[in-house]
Nucleic acid binder design. Structure first.
Lengths: 211, 211
DNA sequence: CAAATTTTTGACCGATTGGACAAACGTTAG
DNA sequence: CTAACGTTTGTCCAATCGGTCAAAAATTTG
């Protein structure tokens, strides 16, 4: 055992080409969904022929599966970093900010994930009920601790996490709608900063006027 | 002029069958997306043969288009009802509640809409930049009035509306994930009431502990 | 009733799909 | 050089797709 991993041994070309395909597939899958995407589209986006693509990934589903596995790791990273050290409100604020930055910088990943969930998560259901639930339960316990200590208001930690996911991912998944409604001026590059400011106030202070 | 509408004249059977098809198509489109759905699937769900379905809707896209037109009317109804009479905080609270009820009672409609937006809204883009933007701008002005009057805290009204959309529709679009994370106990029928309680507190009070 | 009209279906079509396969091409080691 | 191996492509295939069409069946109309 020299490599230390059980991953299949790949040549340099294989690594590069597989990466190229995954990048192209992310683009295609995230905008057309799994069934709405064709191998030809992915192959063309990757600059190679269909049989050539199938040399690196035997089935269309293999590409999607590889993409999903990588996605979940990076996608949940911000939540994993949420921990007990530091001020709770600051911790939550920076979690929200980081999630919003991911929506801004990785909208395709967000849409890929949204597509999968929308269609009933047929391919990652076990992960949701397993790994994801475990992680969320763990972080919900941390948040509950903050509430007991009087550091933040008492609410439902699970729905708090949901609302952070929903509000931040909205700017990736519904980007077209957001830009259409905001119009050319307010819908420009500054919209993420506006969103960050708004979300910070919403989650910290709510809408009640200051007494 | 006896009918008062310019809709094509239809027999009783046509009305019934068209309704049957639209109901079936809503089910199929909302879970598979437009490109991911086949006419055969819709026909089978509607309990008729494919050529028979095509007798009522000439093209697959016609079904989707009809579905979308109906959807937008009912979908924006809660926002239309938001107006200047009554207490602002109460008004917003009841808007959130109504949107959450729609996510609970019409999840398929929500997913149909989400699917369309996710894929770049190719079929309803003009509506977003036109009718929808106008409506939102109008309501944003109302909310701004409330802020000037000191009735609610000053924030960005557009992003406030986005956050209400995002948090409520999350319980329809990401229902699978919500139920998986909450587990069998907390993920049962009571999850919408929990969500309602949480969202009310979030939007009114935020997370800061009471002084 | 019978004629006219509407509704339903089986058979079919061209286009596109995911995927297989063998042959050709390129690269490298001896 | 040549043999071995990794890479690329043209061609092909069966299945599925959206949609057509003529004819049969059912319904409505007179």
């Amino acid at each position: 055992m020299t490599t230390g991993t059980d991953a299949p041994r790949r040549t340099r070309i294989q690594q590069e080409k597989r990466e190229l395909i995954l990048e192209a597939a992310l683009e295609v899958f995230s905008t057309n969904g799994f069934r709405g995407s064709t191998i030809d589209q992915i192959a063309e986006a990757a600059g190679m022929s269909k049989p050539n693509l199938l040399y690196y990934f035997r089935r269309k589903e293999d590409i999607h599966e590889t993409l999903m596995q990588r996605l979940l790791d990076t996608w949940l990273a911000p939540l994993r970093e949420l921990d007990d050290i530091g001020d709770p409100l600051t911790e939550l604020r920076s979690y929200i900010r980081r999630k919003l930055e991911m929506a801004r910088d990785f909208p395709r990943e967000s849409r890929l994930f949204a597509n999968e969930i929308l269609q009933g998560a047929p391919r990652i259901m076990p992960l949701l009920a397993g790994e994801l639930k475990t992680l969320v339960d763990e972080k919900a316990a941390v948040i509950k601790g903050w509430m007991r200590a009087g550091k933040i208001a008492r609410t439902d930690p699970w729905h708090l996490i949901f609302s952070i996911w929903a509000t931040t991912q909205h700017y990736a998944d519904f980007d077209v709608q957001v830009r259409a409604v905001l119009g050319p001026n307010r819908g420009g590059d500054g919209r993420f900063e506006d969103a960050a400011r708004f979300l910070e106030q919403l989650f910290l202070e709510g809408l009640k006027p200051k007494g």
